[in-house]
Design a protein around this nucleic acid. Structure first.
Length: 416
RNA sequence: CGGGAAGUAGCUUAGCUUGGUAGAGCGCUUGGUUUGGGGCCAAGAGGUCGCAGGUUCAAAUCCUGUCUUCCCGACCA
């Protein structure tokens, strides 16, 4: 496990939010010292934000690896000729970040990786016996958005997990599609995010069937039309359904709500495998283009959505599986730090612990602790004279005095 | 790209209408005091007023251009 002194851990909290942050999660990400802007839609992830990102990524990796996906890492910098093969150098538009090297050759910073993955797989694809393949990466993507906004919601540079599957036929593509739909449901549940699956347009990327995973939120950029009677839900851009319209599935009444798209799954079919010649010899002895699927999760956007959903104006409360630390130890005065260090060492063997050893007044420590959102708190203060510490369970909103000798055992019973 | 708003110390900002040596709060440094919810007192440090040009005896302030940021729209795997 892990223990860290707060004086060494860079958490630049702010008393006041930057004036241009208009969305709650954006204000909190800045104030709690998780991110720092470099340019419009481009952010640094500071240590605390990076820890949460790592948590999110860990869940994503676990749920992909256990379903037979393998991780790789592709280049962000991609040559033009691959994009000419798919036709997207001309089709993609100004959102594609283009640049030249010193020899004036064209490159782009990848907004997505269909071209690269297809080029990797096609040379290996001689027989149906090599299929299926499911390859994913977690990587920084670049899109020159006309209008970046709301902090991490729509950035020009952002972290994304993208998975690509290659199948010998549509049945196998359907299998992967359903497998990943289920995986995504598990992933977002583990992150403590309430999501809704909606059918959607396939957009720029091309292909046939697509679903999006939406975190219901007032600040979402998408409008979701959902049925009040059955499980039907769709992206309004695609279905055109308004509040009060009849559900296309069951005829029930439609409602609309805002959502943040944190994940999507596409059946690409053969769009890229045909244009880029990713073919294999099938059981019938003939050449067939691979049936492809692609599946994305916005890692950095998920971070933002999690803050949006698990916070109030003055504090974050991280869900279990993505919390940056388990326990926050607060010695309220310098004279308590020695005891706190011993406790940090002890608890650090079983938990991830952050200890606020700074010479700050109690009020400052409490405010910062609320802001950065670690769910369990151990306060060393005046009750230490009686050999007791205060234990706070922010999930339950409860606090109690615990004899310091019994703390470890108490935590084993309480900490989730 | 169209519409709107804004750039003054690390952060939040006053001053701009009506031109005259740039102010505050928080933060920071030093000393004192305080010690369970962003303390108090005192003394300090910190500024190319986004940038460039123009008008003027004199520009944060007026004019022109430009860059950047945010909001609405268009766009968006």
């Amino acid at each position: 496990m892990f223990a860290m002194k707060q004086s060494l851990f860079f958490i630049p909290t702010l008393k006041e939010a930057p004036k241009d942050a208009e969305v709650k999660s954006h204000r909190l990400l800045s104030r709690a010292g998780l991110v720092k802007p470099a340019a419009a839609g481009i952010y640094s992830y500071l240590p605390l934000g990076q820890r949460v990102m790592r948590r999110i990524e860990r869940i994503v990796r676990e749920e992909h690896d256990k379903r037979g996906c393998s991780e790789l890492l592709m280049p962000a910098l991609q040559p033009r000729d691959l994009w000419d093969e798919s036709g997207r150098w001309s089709d993609y538009g100004p959102e594609l970040m283009r640049l030249k090297d010193r020899k004036e050759r064209d490159f782009c910073l990848g907004p997505t990786h269909e071209e690269v993955i297809t080029a990797i797989v096609r040379d290996h694809l001689d027989s149906y016996k090599k299929l299926p393949l499911a390859l994913y990466q977690i990587q920084t993507k670049y899109r020159d958005e006309l209008r970046p906004r709301f902090g991490l919601m729509r950035g020009r540079e952002f972290v994304m997990k993208d998975l690509y599957t290659f199948s010998e036929n549509e049945e196998d593509l359907d299998f992967w599609y359903e497998t990943m739909k289920e995986a995504y449901t598990v992933i977002f549940e583990r992150m403590g995010l309430e999501t809704r699956i909606v059918s959607s347009d396939t957009g720029q990327i091309g292909g046939d069937v697509a679903h999006e995973f939406m975190v219901m939120s007032e600040v979402g950029e998408d409008t979701i039309a959902y049925c009040t009677e059955c499980s039907y839900a769709s992206n309004q851009d695609f279905s055109g359904l308004e509040t009060g319209d009849a559900c296309p599935e069951c005829g029930g009444r439609s409602e609309t709500a805002k959502g943040i798209e944190v994940g999507n799954i596409f059946k690409l079919g053969t769009k890229y495998s045909e244009s880029m010649n990713a073919r294999f010899t099938g059981r019938d002895g003939k050449r067939h283009p691979a049936q492809m699927g692609c599946y994305g999760i916005g890692i950095s956007r998920t971070l933002m959505a999690a803050v949006e959903q698990h916070s109030d104006e003055e504090s974050i409360l991280w869900p279990k599986e993505i919390r940056p630390f388990d326990i926050h130890i607060l010695p309220l005065a310098d004279e308590h730090v020695e005891k706190a260090e011993a406790l940090t060492k002890e608890l650090g063997s079983s938990y991830e612990v952050l200890m606020d050893d700074r010479s700050e007044r109690p009020g400052v420590k409490f405010k910062d602790a609320d802001l950065i959102g670690i769910p369990y708190r151990v306060v060393l203060g005046r009750s230490l004279e009686e050999g007791k510490v205060e234990f706070v369970d922010r999930y339950r909103g409860e606090k109690e005095l615990i004899p310091i000798q019994g703390l470890r055992e108490h935590l084993e019973n309480v900490i989730d």
